[in-house]
Structure formats: structure tokens, C-alpha cells
């Protein structure tokens, strides 16, 4: 089973064909985003380009995509930071201290995370209205942070239990406070897990559509995911602009994925194996 196959050319031939098929839709979008409107209108989507241009990108950015990308980042970055801070605090408390009902607390938090969003949409919308944070970025940040906390706490809890007891015990004997142990000992040791969860949280938050279309109405506040859906209606037949907008919207998560690739996949796995 672990030996190299008898017919490597068969394996590679098949895999290259499948991989090419997998990448074909992406290639199509990339090429379309670099074509002129006249070229596309004349020859159709499934044709070879006559010439390449970057105009569709400036058109897409000019049509409000800059603003929506900034909106996405203004929501995503705070969500990632606050989520990691809160989840690591809870995980540290639950993993390293004999708090009564700690198992129940952990399981309740995980269960809260697994509730289908549909069950939360209507009451959460009403709650944000009551707090005056409906149709605001703050509202998005609060809700996206709160509904995700359980998963991150659960994963970090598993990770922190792996830190040897002696390390934190020694710090305490040296007079470190609870906060000191957390900030100076536990957090630095948790870095790999934090990087993994951070890149996951970034992707999930950045890609959110459901909460954005539920909690936001003002077009100037929309993050990029719902915004490009709107652009699609506006630029209905200008496929080059829609394609450019799509490519731009994908760049941030692809960058995070490539930069944190190792962590990213391990994040998915620690999430699943514990």
C-alpha cells in the first residue's frame, strides 16, 4: 500500500486531468476579468481573448468595491482579534483550573456554536434593534464574535491541556498572577493554535453572507461578499467587471491561506479530531 504504484503515468495522467478540470473555472474567471467589453460582447465568454486589459479591475474598484473591501476588513479584523482573546481566556480558565461545571460550560459553548444560524436570525435581528446596533458594523462584529466563540474555545481548550502542568505551576510559585500566567506563559505557547484558528476565523468571517444580509441594510456598510452580489445585478452583462470584482473579493482569503497554509489545514484538523 505504501509502495509507489506500478503505473505512475496512469496516476499522474488521471490526476493532472482532474486537477485541470478543478482549476478550469478559476482560469475562466481570471481570463474573463482581463478582457474588454467589446471583445466579450463580440466573441462570447467561451472564446480566446483578443487582447488583455486591467480596466475591468479599476471599474470594479471604482464602482464601490474598494469601500466594501474596507468594510469587510473593518468587520473581520476586530472579530478575529476579539474572538481569539475571549476564546483563549475561557479556554485557559477551563483547561487549567478546577472550576465547578467546567465540562458543562465547555460543552454548552460548543453546542451553542453548532445551532443552525436559521434558529438565531430572527431573535438576533430583534436584539440588535433593541441595542441600537442593527445595520451597523459594531452589530456585525458583536454577533459574529459571539456566535463563533464556542468552537475556538473548544479547540484551544484541547490545545492548552497539552501544555505541561509544571510550566504554569512554576510560574505561579514564582508569584505570577492568573493574568500573568495567561499573558506571559500560556499565550506564547499557544501561538501555533492561535495562528491556525486566526486564519480560519479570518476566512469564515470574511466569507460570511447570511449574517450580513440579515443585519445590514445600508449599502455603504456592506462587506464585499454581499456587495459583489449586488454588483452582479448592476453590471449584468458586463462579465469582465463582474469577473474582476470576483477575483478581487477572493484575494484576501487566498493571501491568508497561502501565508498560513500550514496552520490553516492543521486548524481544520484540530477542530475535527478533538
Amino acid at each position: 500500500m505504501r509502495t509507489t504504484g506500478r503505473r505512475p503515468w496512469l496516476f499522474h495522467g488521471g490526476m493532472i486531468a482532474l486537477a485541470a478540470l478543478w482549476l478550469l473555472p478559476l482560469l475562466l474567471v481570471l481570463v474573463t476579468s482581463l478582457r474588454t467589453f467589446d471583445d466579450l460582447a463580440g466573441a462570447g465568454l467561451a472564446s480566446l481573448p483578443e487582447s488583455l486589459t486591467l480596466d475591468p479591475y479599476s471599474q470594479a474598484l471604482g464602482a464601490g468595491e474598494w469601500r466594501s473591501i474596507v468594510n469587510s476588513l473593518l468587520i473581520t479584523v476586530p472579530v478575529v482579534v476579539v474572538t481569539l482573546v475571549l476564546a483563549s481566556m475561557a479556554a485557559y480558565g477551563l483547561a487549567r483550573h478546577r472550576i465547578p461545571f467546567r465540562r458543562t460550560i465547555l460543552l454548552l459553548m460548543l453546542a451553542g456554536n453548532l445551532l443552525p444560524a436559521q434558529l438565531l436570525l430572527i431573535p438576533v435581528l430583534k436584539l440588535t434593534e433593541q441595542f441600537g446596533i442593527f445595520d451597523s458594523r459594531i452589530g456585525m462584529i458583536v454577533v459574529l464574535t459571539a456566535v463563533g466563540l464556542g468552537f475556538y474555545t473548544f479547540v484551544l481548550h484541547g490545545f492548552m491541556r497539552g501544555i505541561p502542568e509544571e510550566v504554569t505551576q512554576a510560574a505561579k510559585i514564582d508569584g505570577a498572577t492568573t493574568f500573568g500566567v495567561y499573558a506571559r506563559i500560556v499565550l506564547p505557547l499557544t501561538k501555533p493554535a492561535m495562528a491556525a484558528l486566526g486564519s480560519l476565523a479570518f476566512t469564515w468571517t470574511f466569507n460570511d453572507l447570511l449574517w450580513a444580509v440579515t443585519l445590514l441594510r445600508d449599502e455603504t456598510k456592506l462587506p464585499v461578499t454581499p456587495a459583489i452580489l449586488g454588483m452582479q445585478g448592476q453590471y449584468f452583462s458586463q462579465w469582465n467587471v463582474v469577473a474582476a470584482a470576483t477575483v478581487i473579493a477572493a484575494i484576501p482569503t487566498v493571501v491568508v491561506f497561502l501565508r498560513f497554509q500550514r496552520y490553516f489545514i492543521s486548524g481544520l484538523l484540530i477542530g475535527s479530531s478533538k
Binding site: L108, M109, G112, N113, L115, L119, L120, I122, P123, V124, L127, V142, V143, A146, V147, L149, G150
Partner: peptide, 8 residues
Amino acid sequence: EMFWTFWP
């Protein structure tokens, strides 16, 4: 988390 998940 409880306030924004179980309560809703």
C-alpha cells in the same frame, strides 16, 4: 456566547 446563541 449564551446570550447570542441559546437565548435567541
